[in-house]
Amino acid sequence: MSALLHQTLSGLATGGIYASVALALVMVYRATRHLNFAQGEMATFSTYIALTLIQAGVPYWAAFALTVVLSFALGVALERLLLRRMAQAPGLSAVGVSIGLLLIFNALSGWLFGYTVKQFPSPFEGRSGGVLGGLVSGHELGMTAVTVVLLLLVYGFFRFTRLGLAMRAAAGNAESSRLVGIDVGWTLAIGWGMAASLGAVAGMMVAPLVFLDPNMMSGVLLYAFAGALLGGIDNPFGAAVGGFAVGVIENLGGAYIVGTELKLTLALVIIAAVLVLRPAGLFGRAVVVRV
């Protein structure tokens, strides 16, 4: 029983990572109708930036904040310089560009920071013996707290701020948004920036568990896709819930059903199952257009 509880809690902890990346994917998807396949590799690259800062002597949380800001700038720059030109392009081009970015960031990570697997520090290492009676590690608890706070911040931003409202408006109806004076292009860029920041936090939080290498986030990205789809690819709230759910499913499934060697197959099974059973996802409001 305690093993089951342990697996569930630990699943929720990684689920927070999936939820953050899923939310990043959904934010970009809602605004552009395109999936950013490079989201994971961008996050890995951000995590390398954080490690470089920490190794240069910057205190952990300062490096954390700086990385979030730099990632935001990176996301904004990519949208402004590259993706904006692809806004009207067909699906193939949009997927192509994001695959191109995936390859470039993956190679850049390896080229600039090396292919050897690196340790990444955790800010919650003090109680390494575990908390809650040894059920979860200090880092797992800390990273769950960070991701939950992050998700609440994003929720508050969209719900209560003027810019957040403008971004929701622009994602739903770009033409009317321009008519009320919103610069839709900039909301897209800011959305990309926020998505990159979310990914960066996810990367920094997961790196102490899985260690840092250029392919660190490729599995996470798939689970995040599965989570986003499960919750509803058009629904940020659903994506977050879906991310947590996938974390738990992955952990329990890995522990009791398929074993760790087939964990990625679980992502395929979830994605396929959602497409077959409930394409709009658990919380998808809009009915998916059938064509």
Partner: peptide, 23 residues
Amino acid sequence: PALRLRGPYLALVTLALAAAVPQ
């Protein structure tokens, strides 16, 4: 399941397939 929907679903499910098959 992927192709009766409009959207990037085929890309998604095929990417998951590509990741799962080596495993």
